[in-house]
Amino acid sequence: MNVFRLTGDLSHLAAIIILLLKIWKSRSCAGISGKSQILFAIVFTTRYLDLLTSFISLYNTSMKLIYVGCAYATVYLIYVKFRATYDGNHDSFRVEFLIVPVGGLAVLINHSFAPLEILWTFSIYLESVAILPQLFMISKTGEAETITTHYLFCLGLYRALYLFNWVWRFYFEGFFDMIAIVAGLVQTVLYCDFFYLYVTKVLKGKKLSLPA
């Protein structure tokens, strides 16, 4: 555990809580992609199956349980409790275009051809692109609520901090996981455009809106 890893995890946790609170307090999931949230629920479910097979630490186990629990709670709020506010017409990204290639890639490129390991790999690849339906939705509507941009910023920051964590681990522990690193790089790059808008607009007190 190093400072980048810990702040990365906390940033990830902050993103998840911000989104849950936003939906709960406003009693609305307008502007939120339910598809991205379903993908994140799949990501956590397939990655944390090792909860059943191995114990790493109390920190590790409790964070995994919190992430999984919050992911399903978010999906429940969007598709059940506040379904009437869900903007399905703008959430039109075709997720099969992500799931199918990612599944194929996980079977082809993995650390070991074992069921749990393939599912872990699948979750890593899927996480790197799971935000695309959300970014697609924002590009379609041309705007995002400020609180939604805080959510996205924390989520992108988490992956950027993990990149520093991997540099740290490579130098001090000789550890590197090529699958996680490449997928993490892809994931971080996807946020770059958004980071730019966040810094130039949202942090200056303006709402995030895209030119028509």
Partner: peptide, 10 residues
């Protein structure tokens, strides 16, 4: 036996 892989990160 296949090598045991540990994923200690979240």
């Amino acid at each position: 036996h296949a090598l045991e892989i540990h994923h200690d990160e979240l």
